[in-house]
């Protein structure tokens, strides 16, 4: 195949755009797609201070590279989840990436911040690792952004991530989740007058126009040494099954993913407008993070603090946790 722009030898073909690109023009194409998403969804201006959550995987490292290339002031944030050698290797990949580019990076560890790794939390609370992990990541990313004074938290969710999440939310009609499915989640402020404070930082997903295969291809052509291996706790995660099913639909009908996600944003998202309006949010009695106002009589504690205190109680009681299986998916 020939590059759509220069007719040189193509290395990547994108069927939904009916185009193939050489290395240079593919890089340019991806930069343009990200710049377009930032503009289209009014994500941030040229002077914003950005914090990007990075995992050492292809999406977040590719996006970090793209934002640096586009000239943004963007700092990496790596959270060590304590998932054995997977965490060690992904941390090394992230640090190496930052050093090569002289990029700013903040590293924190869940165990050091709160006392529990993801596998420990999962076995102490008897929940699947990904649910506790997701909760902890959201909490820690937001806390880091607020504490370190960033305007915006950037995440590497790509088109396939968003479509798979949308697909799952539609399968189960999670209407409250559908309300929060867009590429931008607005900030949340709590309190009045002097006590007014930022509680949730604005979150954006600049990769929504880029398919997962393209972020991987971008990482390869840019020589980004990302962690190819998957988190060992991912086994049984439905997100991956959705992605495989959607990839088959995309294969037989290129453009399906784009159509589903952007069609939703255009034609349906507003019908699920966020019902958890600011009036319903209160600060957690323990940590101050926003949480839905509880029924009269129950504690005003956020889900993160509830999970932490359950794990702490069980550890203190010598709870004999079932070990969490760590196995590769395939």
């Amino acid at each position: 195949m020939k590059c759509k722009v220069c007719r040189g030898h193509a290395v990547v073909d994108i069927r939904r755009h009916n185009a193939a690109f050489c290395t240079d023009h593919f890089t340019e194409h991806i930069h343009n797609q990200v710049a377009k998403a930032i503009k289209e969804f009014h994500m941030f201006g040229p002077d914003a201070r950005l914090l990007i959550a990075v995992s050492g995987g292809k999406d977040s490292l590719a996006l970090w590279d793209i934002l640096l290339q586009l000239g943004y002031d963007v700092t990496g944030f790596y959270l060590d989840l304590g998932i054995g050698s997977y965490s060690t290797r992904s941390k090394e990949a992230t640090i190496a990436f930052a050093e090569e580019r002289d990029a700013k990076l903040i590293v924190r560890s869940l165990a050091e911040e709160h006392g529990f790794t993801v596998p420990e939390l999962a076995s102490l609370t008897n929940r699947v690792p990904c649910s506790g992990c997701g909760l902890n990541k959201r909490y820690e990313f937001n806390r880091a952004a607020l504490e370190e004074g960033f305007d915006i938290l950037v995440t590497g969710h790509n088109l396939d991530d968003e479509v798979a999440t949308l697909f799952g939310n539609v399968l189960h009609w999670n209407t409250d989740m559908l309300a929060r499915q867009g590429p931008v989640l607005e900030e949340r402020v709590l309190g009045e007058g002097d006590r007014r404070r930022m509680a949730l930082v604005r979150k954006v997903k600049p990769l929504v126009r880029v398919a997962e295969r393209e972020t991987a291809a971008y990482a390869v052509v840019r020589g980004i040494d990302y962690i190819v291996e998957e988190c060992p706790m991912v086994e049984g995660n439905v997100q991956h099954k959705y992605k495989e099913a959607i990839a088959m639909l995309e294969e037989s009908s290129p453009g399906t993913k784009h159509q589903m996600y952007f069609g939703f944003l255009k034609k349906a998202a507003s019908r699920f407008a966020d019902e958890t309006d600011a009036a319903n949010l209160v600060g957690c009695a323990n940590c101050g993070s926003p949480t839905i106002a509880p029924e009269a009589g129950s504690d005003r504690v956020c889900s993160f603090c509830r999970m932490q205190s359950l794990a702490q109680r069980r550890r203190d009681d010598g709870y004999r946790a079932r070990p969490v299986r760590v196995r590769k998916r395939r």
């Binding site: 959550a53 990075v54 995992s55 995987g57 292809k58 999406d59 977040s60 959270l79 989840l81 990904c130 649910s131 992990c133 997701g134 990541k137 959201r138 995440t155 590497g156 969710h157 396939d160 991530d161 999440t165 997962e212 295969r213 972020t215 991987a216 998957e230 988190c231 991912v234 995660n237 997100q239 991956h240 992605k243 495989e244 990839a247 998916r329």
Partner: peptide, 11 residues
């Protein structure tokens, strides 16, 4: 190229 964590990136 398809990863599968519920937490999205970070996975």
């Amino acid at each position: 190229v398809l990863s599968g964590g519920a937490g999205g990136p970070g996975s």
